[in-house]
Amino acid sequence: MNNFQPTSKTIKCVIIDDDPFIQELLKDKLNQYFPDINIVGLGNDGKEGLENIILLKPDLVFLDVEMTDMTGFEMLSRLDTINFKTIFITSYKHYAIKAIRFNALDYLLKPFDLEELKNAIKRFKSNYHKVGKSEQVGLALNNLNTKNISDQILPLKTQQGDLHLALKDIIIIEGDRNYSIIHLISNRKELVSKTLSDLEDLLSNKGFFRCHKSYIINKTHIVDQPNSISINISNGMNIPISRRKKESFVNWFKTAKVL
């Protein structure tokens, strides 16, 4: 069985946040509802966070996205190895949430809804041994440091397991109710359990455009526009542009960077 196997106080946890209120609140909620979590350290900023992690070797770190001395991502990038899972903590709709979601990282909104906290702990326990501890965060740090957006890697889940796709390899995405079919170069296709709207949200600032209720296109793979209601794509497909998207497509095509 892959799940975390707590005996008593087996999950060593560190909280890193520069707000004493958040530290206390999270500490109280964890102590009250999760007796198998042992809070071994508190960090008031990124520097203290690094010291805590190196010294205390936690299993789980709750990490503030925006601290006074550095961001949570900057703090993680300063570690040689990451042998713990991270749950990012942030205020409502912080600009970093888009990056966190794109990289399939876990996060919680302050001041912590109990059900969301329970779900996050449940995910931590069930994934603890499944995914390499440094893999997800390492991928995120690479993506954040990748200047060319089309070289960024999108992590997704399929029935066969985890899938990592370079954005430049995605030609179009086709909606299929609660699923999406990703058409890739070399005529490969992947079925993922995300809706087209979920993917539109993740990819809209990365050179992709939802031109139709059933399609998202990658600007890199547009060959030409034979008329105002369709476009030709590098894999030979002709993709429709919906009537209400015609104008916004033209604007996007003019302004979106060729990646």
């Binding site: 707000d19 209120f21 958040i22 609140l25 925006e66 205020s91 409502y92 912080h94 302050k110 001041p111």
Partner: peptide, 16 residues
């Protein structure tokens, strides 16, 4: 940004 979670926690809803 820093104050916001504490204010939410104290139920000061109309300034959120």
């Amino acid at each position: 940004h820093k104050m916001s979670p504490q204010l939410q926690f104290f139920g000061i809803q109309d300034i959120i």
